Simulated assay, not measured.
Amino acid sequence: MSPALPAAPPRDGAGPAPSGHRACRPHRARPVRAARPAPAAPPARSARSDRGAVLVEFAGMFPLILLMLAVALQCAVIGYGFHLAGNAADEAARAGAAAGGGEGACGEAARAHIPDSWSMSVSCPLQGEVRQARVELRVPVLFPGAFNLPITISGTAGAVQEGP
């Protein structure tokens, strides 16, 4: 024989609850609450506490910003110097190697491709059948025409000598 099952609790919530269970309460509707207002903003700090902070930070950073700009400009001047030296040497070698050219035409061609504000020197020796042009520029500080750094930039090029 099988054991008898316990009787089910009544459905209306009356009567004892089974062991280990709480009795169910009838559902009650909750009242609708009004929306809460947004929390108030925290009290503002006095205007005197931050006054001048941006000016102090700017005054501290401004010299560093100027220094970074000067370094970037100097790097651009050095790069431009390499471009000028290489181009002038190339043009000088072509002019010197042309028929009837020689060292005079080589130097003139190099000087025509370098602005007057740059300090430069040109040499155009003939080595075998190749006219070698070497242009050396002094690197100016920040912009040409001012002081020069103790650095020279050189550009070299060669061209085969034409004709007799």
Rank of each mutant, 00 (worst) to 15 (best):
R28N: 11
A92M: 02
G79K: 07
V32L: 08
R22K: 09
G155H: 01
M68R: 00
V160A: 00
P39T: 05
G81Y: 05
M68I: 09
A133N: 01
P16R: 13
P37F: 06
A47H: 05
G128Y: 03
G15F: 08
P42R: 15
R131N: 01
F82E: 10
R45T: 10
P43Y: 04
P10N: 05
R45D: 10
C124L: 03
G79C: 07
G163C: 02
E91K: 11
P150C: 10
A133I: 00
R138T: 10
A112G: 08
A41T: 11
E136Q: 15
L5K: 11
R134G: 02
V141T: 14
F143Q: 14
G145K: 15
S46N: 05
Q127I: 05
E129G: 01
A92G: 02
L5V: 10
A109V: 03
G107D: 11
S154P: 04
P140T: 07
V71W: 05
L55T: 07
G163V: 00
V139Q: 02
R138K: 14
A23W: 03
A146M: 15
C106M: 04
A23Q: 10
A72E: 08
S119W: 10
H27S: 09
A53G: 05
A53Y: 00
A72I: 09
A159C: 04
S119R: 13
I153D: 03
F62I: 06
A112L: 07
A76R: 06
E103V: 06
S123K: 05
V130W: 00
A112D: 15
E136P: 03
M68S: 11
R94K: 06
D116A: 12
A34H: 07
P125T: 04
G96H: 03
Q127D: 09
P6C: 04
A85G: 05
C106N: 05
S2P: 13
L64S: 13
